[in-house]
């Protein structure tokens, strides 16, 4: 009897192994094809996301090139690499956008992206990722509060370094009620970003693309 044979086969360990094996193969095949189908679209979406966040910190009116074209990679003293997206207008650098980060958030790392002009004034700052407390620390997101907008037009020197603190620490900027650590961490990240600009200013505002002078693109700090 074929049916009896089949039901006896169902109880053997071979059937279980075959079952698990075929389901795993099927699952792998599904995931591989799913990944192949969506990979390009996802990469394209991430590119759009990057461009959107770049345009938030450096308005498109300031430059006439493709920001994602030839980003500048600079290695900092501690060995980390910063990618700088540069906006140019008539072969002059008019806007720079790069990321800065801090580990001093209430729940770990906060990453920001900031845009500065050629003289080091902030054009815009946005928080890219954070894990701060919802409802308290997440007011650093522009969608929830306009706190992050108050830095536009400021630079290192306006206010001076001691002013780049929350009011509780003797600085110029308000914290949120119930959350001091988060704004303090964001200010730290901005300060770091402004220091990055002063440290690498010559390389940042000089165009070194192949059309001008072919200089090495990667510059280490002295």
């Amino acid at each position: 009897m074929a049916a009896g044979l089949l039901s006896r086969f169902r109880d053997t360990i071979g059937y279980q192994a075959l079952l698990l094996g075929s389901f795993s193969t099927l699952a792998t095949a599904l995931l591989v094809s799913g990944n192949a189908l969506t990979r390009e679209a996802i990469a394209e979406r991430h590119r759009e996301d990057l461009l959107t966040s770049l345009h938030e910190v450096v308005p498109a009116a300031l430059f006439d090139n493709d920001l994602l074209d030839q980003p500048l990679k600079i290695t900092r003293a501690d060995g980390t690499q910063v990618t700088v997206y540069r906006g140019t207008d008539h072969n002059r650098v008019t806007a720079l956008a790069y990321e800065a980060e801090t580990q001093s958030g209430y729940s770990g790392e906060i990453r920001i992206i900031m845009g500065v002009n050629a003289s080091g004034e902030i054009i815009g700052v946005r928080v890219l990722s954070h894990a701060e407390t919802p409802g308290l620390g997440d007011k650093i997101e522009v969608a929830k509060n306009d706190w992050i907008l108050q830095f536009n037009g400021l630079s290192m020197g306006n206010p001076s370094r001691s002013g780049w603190r929350v009011k509780k620490d003797g600085g110029n900027f308000d914290a949120f009620s119930g959350a001091t650590i988060t704004p303090r961490a964001v200010l730290e990240a901005i300060e770091k970003g402004l220091d990055f600009f002063s440290e690498f200013k010559p390389q940042l505002i000089t165009l070194t693309t192949s059309t001008v002078t072919p200089l090495p693109q990667e510059v280490s700090s002295p």
Binding site: F23, S24, A27, L30, L31, G34, N35, L37, T38, A41, I42, R45
Partner: peptide, 18 residues
């Protein structure tokens, strides 16, 4: 578990892409 995990991963990828 396998079926549910594959399903969630596919939903995640498809939503991320489109």
């Amino acid at each position: 578990v396998l079926i549910i995990a594959v399903l969630v991963t596919l939903v995640d990828m498809v939503m991320n892409a489109w």
